[in-house]
Simulated scan of single mutants.
Amino acid sequence: MGLTADICDEHKDNVVLANPIFHHYGNTTTFSGPVQTVQVFEDNVLVKQALETIPEGSVLVIDGGASRRYALMGDNLAAIAQKRNLAGVIIHGSIRDAGEINKMPVGIFALGTTPFPSIKNGEGKRGTSLRFANTTWEPGSWVYADEDGILVAEKEL
């Protein structure tokens, strides 16, 4: 059984299942960790800052407003996540360089891909509560993600 299936067997009442709107990228298919958040729109300056500074083992959750026009992450930012040993990344938006990212030992869930790079204005917020995919993503809550889905819990299970 997978991570999320086992968690649902033991802790079904303590988790919320995110709507299955995401595609998986990278060759790490299972990850879990505490949530760190970024809210941006078509601008990835704060995404890069978060990748460079959040604690090792964290899951960076990015609310990109569901935009599919500009990528919030490419292979260079995925390499930062890999180098810093982040658990994974969940993006309510798009990535680019999917072919390269799929060869990397990272776990990323995103809505899809686009070739366009992001805007670089540095606008957005870090460390705030986010709401998308029928789920609330609070900094410090826990994410469990694998091929079966993405679960969110208030604390580590």
Rank of each mutant, 00 (worst) to 15 (best):
R96F: 01
R96S: 14
R96Y: 05
R96A: 07
A98E: 15
A98L: 01
A98W: 01
G99D: 15
E100I: 14
E100C: 04
E100M: 11
I101P: 04
N102Q: 05
N102K: 04
N102F: 01
K103D: 13
K103A: 14
K103W: 00
M104Y: 02
P105E: 11
P105D: 15
V106S: 09
V106G: 04
V106I: 15
G107V: 07
I108C: 03
I108Y: 00
I108Q: 02
F109Y: 14
F109E: 03
A110F: 03
A110M: 04
L111A: 06
L111Y: 04
L111T: 02
L111I: 12
L111M: 11
G112S: 03
T113F: 02
T113L: 01
T113A: 00
T114P: 12
F116V: 10
F116M: 06
F116G: 01
P117T: 13
P117S: 11
P117W: 04
S118Y: 00
S118G: 15
I119W: 05
K120P: 00
N121C: 08
G122C: 05
G122W: 03
G122K: 02
G122V: 09
G122P: 09
E123D: 11
E123Y: 11
G124T: 07
K125C: 09
K125L: 12
R126Y: 01
R126N: 12
G127M: 09
G127Y: 05
T128V: 15
T128D: 10
T128F: 08
T128K: 14
S129T: 15
S129I: 14
L130E: 11
F132K: 02
F132A: 01
F132S: 01
F132W: 03
F132P: 02
A133Q: 04
A133I: 09
N134V: 00
N134Y: 05
T135S: 13
T135H: 07
T135C: 13
T135Q: 06
W137Y: 13
W137A: 07
P139L: 03
P139F: 05
P139Y: 06
G140S: 10
G140E: 08
G140K: 13
G140F: 08
S141Q: 04
S141P: 02
S141R: 00
Y144D: 11
Y144E: 09
A145D: 12
A145N: 10
A145P: 11
